[in-house]
Computed example of a mutant assay.
Amino acid sequence: MASYDVNSAAVDKAREMIGARQYVLDSDWREAQPSADDENAFLENHTWAEYSSWHLGLTAGANDETKARYGFVLGDLRRIHRSALIACVYRASEWRHKDVELAAHDLLQHLDATSA
C-alpha cells in the first residue's frame, strides 16, 4: 500500500481558496471530481506545482511531476468541494493515512466554520 505525506502547499492553497469563498458546498463528488482527461487538460495550461496544489497527499517514493505522485484531490481544479474534503477524510481514514485524514478534517472544519 502506498504511503502519503501531507502536501503543505495544498493545505495553504485550500485555506486561501476557502477564505476567498472559492468553494462548492453541495455537490456529488462522483460527478464533480476531475477525470483523467480533465487533469490532462489542466496540465496543458498549468504547471506541475499548480497541479500539485490540488492534492492533499504526496505519494512517498513517487517521482515529482508524475500523476502517481499526487493523491487526495481537493476539488474540481477550479474550486474546493466540501464533498471532496469528506471523501479525503473517508479514504484516508479507511487506508490509515492518519496525517492526511487529520489535514482533510481540519480543512473541512475550516470550510464549515467559514461558510456558516
Rank of each mutant, 00 (worst) to 15 (best):
Y4F: 15
D5M: 07
V6A: 08
A9V: 03
A10G: 05
A10W: 04
V11M: 01
V11E: 14
E16H: 13
I18V: 06
A20E: 15
R21N: 13
Y23T: 02
D26I: 07
S27T: 02
S27P: 00
S27V: 00
D28S: 04
W29A: 00
R30Y: 03
R30E: 14
R30H: 11
S35H: 09
S35I: 01
A36Y: 05
E39Y: 01
E39F: 00
N40A: 14
N40I: 03
N40V: 03
A41I: 03
A41L: 04
F42C: 06
E44K: 14
E44R: 14
N45D: 14
H46R: 09
A49K: 11
S52D: 11
S53L: 05
H55P: 09
L56W: 10
G57N: 11
L58E: 10
T59A: 15
G61Q: 05
G61E: 06
A62G: 11
N63I: 02
E65Q: 13
A68K: 10
R69A: 11
V73S: 04
V73F: 00
V73H: 04
L77C: 06
R78A: 05
I80D: 07
R82M: 03
R82H: 10
S83V: 01
S83C: 08
A84Q: 08
A84S: 06
L85D: 10
I86R: 13
A87P: 01
A87W: 12
V89T: 08
V89C: 15
A92E: 13
W95V: 07
W95I: 02
W95R: 13
R96A: 13
H97E: 15
E101H: 15
E101W: 07
E101L: 11
L102H: 14
A103K: 14
L107D: 08
H110V: 04
H110M: 04
L111I: 03
D112I: 04
S115C: 08
